[in-house]
Simulated assay, not measured.
Amino acid sequence: MRIIVSDEIESVCPEFVGAHVEIYVHNSPYSAGLWGEIDRLGQEFRQTLTTETLKDITGIAATRQVYRACGKDPSRYRPAAEALIRRILQGKQLYQINTLVDLVNLASIRYGYSIGGFDADKFEGDTLTLGVGRAGEPYEGIGRGTINIEGLPVYRDAVGGVGTPTSDNERTKIDDNTTHLVVLINGYDGCEADVRANAEYILQLARDYCDGTDGSYYIYK
């Protein structure tokens, strides 16, 4: 899969760096080991963060800044990493979906990047383009119905939008039968070292909890 970063994104975030992570997996309804890692990280967050200081995490702060630059209110349309960590700090459990989705959520909160997890076999075409949502552009967020993505960064395949930092699309979502995982990491803070570390972390989690094989990643800007 080829990734193109549009001029729209480069103009508001010239330092952007992303990673395309790909691995073949076996999904499962639940992984106790993975949830042990999620719970330990949640405990750490509750000891070190508040709902205000979490906004200072570099990946979250940079994503919020890009939202504003694109014309979107980040407090109304929260980046996913911020929403997930905020939920933990409020004493709530993260939603348990399936092992792959839970894995992607863990990887997101661990590094503060709003990342997209997709069933790669559901993409249309061989290219994804990162641009900005347009007025009236159709988009069905996972479990959220129609979302107004005007002013949100959005990845599009040959058919239309598949992922934003707020919500991925129902059309390409991970389900119980997903065997070909693609994860896109959005480093709006420009920290390539952290983006690479996040990519390697995802591959390791997939190997540990989803029998991952043939895993790889590449950086794009």
Rank of each mutant, 00 (worst) to 15 (best):
N169M: 03
G151S: 02
S6A: 11
Y77T: 09
G160M: 00
L34Y: 10
I202T: 13
D126E: 15
G36Q: 10
V159Y: 13
D176S: 15
E10Y: 11
T213M: 12
G161M: 05
L84T: 01
I38A: 13
T179H: 15
T58H: 13
D208F: 04
T178K: 03
C210I: 02
S11M: 14
L103S: 13
G71E: 01
A135R: 06
G91C: 04
V154I: 14
G117A: 05
E192H: 05
L103Y: 10
F16C: 07
T129A: 10
Y155N: 02
V132W: 00
T48L: 03
E137Y: 01
G42Q: 05
Q43Y: 09
E37S: 07
Q65H: 14
G212H: 00
Y95K: 15
T51W: 02
F16E: 04
Y67D: 03
R110H: 14
Y201P: 07
D7M: 09
V25H: 06
R171Y: 12
I3Y: 10
V12R: 06
I38V: 15
E37F: 01
E52N: 12
P29M: 01
K221D: 09
T172R: 03
T48I: 00
G59H: 06
D7P: 08
Y30I: 04
H26C: 11
E15K: 13
G160I: 00
A80M: 12
P29H: 08
Y113I: 07
C210W: 08
T164Q: 08
T53F: 03
S216A: 11
R64L: 01
A206G: 01
T58L: 12
V101T: 14
Y24E: 14
Q47S: 15
N27D: 13
T51K: 14
L54F: 11
T48K: 10
G33D: 13
I219S: 03
L181R: 03
L106V: 04
E37Y: 05
A62H: 07
K55N: 11
K122M: 10
V101D: 07
R207I: 11
S114G: 02
A32T: 04
Q204H: 12
I149Q: 05
T63S: 12
I4P: 00
P165G: 10
T48C: 00
L205W: 06
Q47W: 09
I142K: 06
G36D: 14
Q93S: 15
G116Q: 04
D208C: 07
G163T: 09
Y113L: 10
G18I: 05
G145A: 03
Q43E: 14
G112V: 02
E15P: 00
G136M: 02
L203T: 03
S28F: 07
Y155G: 03
D56P: 00
I38W: 09
C70S: 12
A199K: 04
P74E: 01
L41D: 07
T51H: 05
Y220K: 02
Q93C: 07
I9W: 08
L203F: 08
Y217R: 04
Y139C: 05
V162N: 04
P153R: 08
R78P: 01
V66D: 09
R46V: 08
T164N: 08
V183Y: 06
E170C: 11
D126S: 14
V101Y: 07
V5N: 08
R76S: 11
V154A: 13
L41M: 14
D126H: 11
Y113P: 06
P138H: 06
G36I: 01
I23T: 08
A199T: 04
H180Q: 13
I4G: 02
G160C: 01
L103K: 03
L103Q: 04
L203S: 06
R171I: 02
C13W: 02
G18E: 05
